[in-house]
Amino acid sequence: MRIVCPFCGERELGEFTYLGDAKPQRPAADAGEDAVYDYVYLRDNVAGPMSEHWYHGGGCRAWLKVTRNTLTHEISAVEPAAGAGAAKVGA
């Protein structure tokens, strides 16, 4: 399996580390315990295309959002995390 890193190009699986479901969003500070509990523990068991977090630790250290079909390992999209990439010059 290979992933096309938006910064480095097509690279072999061994360069990446898997984290898991990219869908849950970290709740706001005042969201309460139930919302955080859901965020930390509750995951869908997806059979089909799934949005996942992968880390290109063997390359550019970017966190990537990878859409992978869990049935076929087919990867249909790779996009960098919002904060990945170059410094925010003048941001």
Partner: peptide, 9 residues
């Protein structure tokens, strides 16, 4: 890096 890129971009 996860915190920086994903949680707090």
């Amino acid at each position: 890096e996860f915190c920086r890129q994903v949680l707090f971009p």
